[in-house]
Computed example of a mutant assay.
Amino acid sequence: MAKDTETFIEAVALHLQSQGVPRTTGRVFGFLLLRAEPTSLDQLTEDLGISKASASTGARYLERLGLVERVPRPGARRDYYQLVDDPARALVLHVDAMRAMGTILQDGQKKISGVRAEVRTRLNRMAQVHREATTFLERLLRRKYG
């Protein structure tokens, strides 16, 4: 693998690691970003120098996040992975998660009693941020991706 490719993959991995994603999973994502064709776990293992278990775990994690999809290959018995065609799909999952957290915060505001004023203020502010961020991202998705 070329040095610039390795550097890119590692930069992606380190960024995602700072967001709570395991580093090896970040490496899998960085690698798949650069692939035009679906990639097998064997190929991930060989090119990234990671175990098959790590490649599988990383690919499945990215699949749950909506960033990667498993694709069938006629006659093949192994799994192949590629990035999703629609980059907004992953963002939709994050918007859904943000909306759910906003609902939890709003419910908490209504149902939790006996908390100090600064705690109630914190809940109010967090609920407001989630509401505004969700609204903004939903508008962006509608405008950009119809």
Rank of each mutant, 00 (worst) to 15 (best):
K144E: 13
T103V: 04
V12L: 06
Y81P: 15
K111N: 10
H15D: 14
T25L: 01
Q109V: 09
F29R: 00
R131N: 14
R60G: 11
A127G: 08
R60E: 11
R143P: 07
Q17N: 04
A88K: 09
R131V: 02
Q19T: 15
M98E: 12
G30F: 00
V119H: 08
A127Y: 03
Y80I: 04
V129W: 12
R77E: 10
R77L: 14
K110D: 12
I50H: 02
L34N: 01
E118T: 10
K144N: 06
L83K: 10
Q128L: 11
L16D: 06
H94L: 13
S113W: 05
L14C: 11
I50N: 05
A76E: 13
D4T: 15
R131L: 11
G20M: 01
Y81D: 10
G49A: 08
P38M: 06
K144R: 14
R70N: 09
P87I: 07
S40E: 02
R125Q: 05
G102H: 00
Q109W: 03
A2S: 05
T5V: 03
Y145H: 07
D85N: 14
E118Y: 05
P38I: 03
A36M: 01
E69D: 02
V84Y: 13
S51H: 04
L105H: 00
A100D: 05
R99G: 02
R120W: 14
L44C: 04
D86V: 09
R89Q: 02
H94R: 02
Q128M: 09
G30T: 00
G20R: 04
K144V: 09
M126S: 06
E132C: 09
A127S: 13
F136C: 09
Q17T: 13
V68L: 05
D96E: 11
Q43V: 14
V12W: 01
M1P: 08
G102S: 01
R35Q: 15
G102R: 03
R70T: 07
Q17K: 15
D4S: 14
V21K: 06
R64I: 02
T24D: 02
T7R: 09
E132D: 15
P22G: 09
E69K: 12
V71Q: 12
V129S: 15
D85Q: 14
V12D: 01
T134H: 08
R35K: 15
T103A: 05
V28E: 00
L137G: 11
L48N: 04
